[in-house]
Design a protein around this nucleic acid. Structure first.
Lengths: 176, 176
DNA sequence: GAGGTTAAGTTATAACATAACATAAGCAAA
DNA sequence: TTTGCTTATGTTATGTTATAACTTAACCTC
């Protein structure tokens, strides 16, 4: 099982997440002869600023702020499209939002564990779940092509806090 | 395993699906003292016209056609909200669309098998998948609240047809 | 039938996404 | 080094999905 859940839900040196993601992205693009342009890199970096998925228009606002000039939606959607295609990010359908992929090289089908309190999302590549899905499909004569698995609940941190203090939100924290 | 996959993907007497769904809805609303108003019933009926999920604005068009007067989006969204809350329909997040629930009484977490060719969607309540997800969450100290599992591929019918004639779409059929 | 509650109508707008066309940047071969 | 091809970005407009806010009507109970 490949997962970044431990990392996402604990305090950690988040600068390492960002720089590791950028390194992976540069390597991957170099290998495949793809252009990681400034816009694309900025969007990727923004998506790694936290472990929370960001929507296209949040990205737009933030990129506009960084670059000091207005950014139009197509700019964002193009960068997002590129990053999705290359596997550097994922789309979370139920949130209309995007998040950096922690293991873009591995060929994986994903499961996201999304915290309804702090908003953080961890990615899990769980081979027994995938196998079970595959066999379920086979039994139904359904030819599996793609999957979108998103589960909602409380991350370890927020679970603990709810138990301790009876449910005060920690939406302002994301355990960077 | 509870599933309507066999039914969805085979030719069948679809009038029975519709009338069964309406009976279930009426019973459930009677039991829980909820009002299945004409608008709500119309929307539910529309969602049972086929086994394909419909978007809010498709519902709007069709309801306008049926009722002979313009329908505003909030009307649709309110009906949808009611039907979702009572468990009579589900939302398919990755399609921004809605579909009737074939077993609204059973307390179930769902998996949808959505055909990328004909658009039909079957619902599967698979206890071993749910157990595996639950145990995966427990191991990660993640408190599961809700899930959105949507898998894409070719339904049995479309699989067969692709094998037979090399990939001619059957998007116009949905095996009612 | 007065008054509370729930549902529906109406208008406007927010939030998410793409089409279509124009311009510019990167790059390879003449 | 410029010509021409390809890829990326800018720009404007619009399509699609969803909700806010306020008004009116239906229903239900006393």
């Amino acid at each position: 099982m490949l997962s970044n859940s431990r990392l996402v839900h604990q305090p950690h040196d988040h600068r390492r997440c960002i720089s590791a993601a950028l390194t992976r992205a540069r390597d991957l693009c170099a290998e495949e002869n793809l252009r990681l342009t400034p816009t694309r890199e900025s969007v990727l970096r923004l998506l790694w600023q936290s472990h929370r998925p960001l929507g296209a228009y949040q990205l737009q606002d933030q990129l506009a702020k960084i670059s000091g000039k207005p950014i139009a939606p197509p700019t964002i959607y193009r960068a997002v499209e590129f990053l999705l295609k290359t596997g550097l990010i994922h789309r979370i359908a139920s949130l209309n939002a995007y998040i950096g992929c922690p293991f873009p090289n591995s060929d994986h089908s994903n499961l996201f564990m999304i915290c309804t309190d702090c908003g953080s999302a961890a990615e899990v590549a769980h081979s027994s779940i995938n196998k079970l899905l595959q066999s379920t499909c086979e039994k139904a004569n359904f030819t599996l092509q793609d999957q979108s698995l998103e589960i909602f609940g409380l991350c370890p941190n927020c679970s603990l806090q709810q138990q301790e203090n009876g449910g005060i939100s920690s939406a302002d924290k994301d355990h960077e």
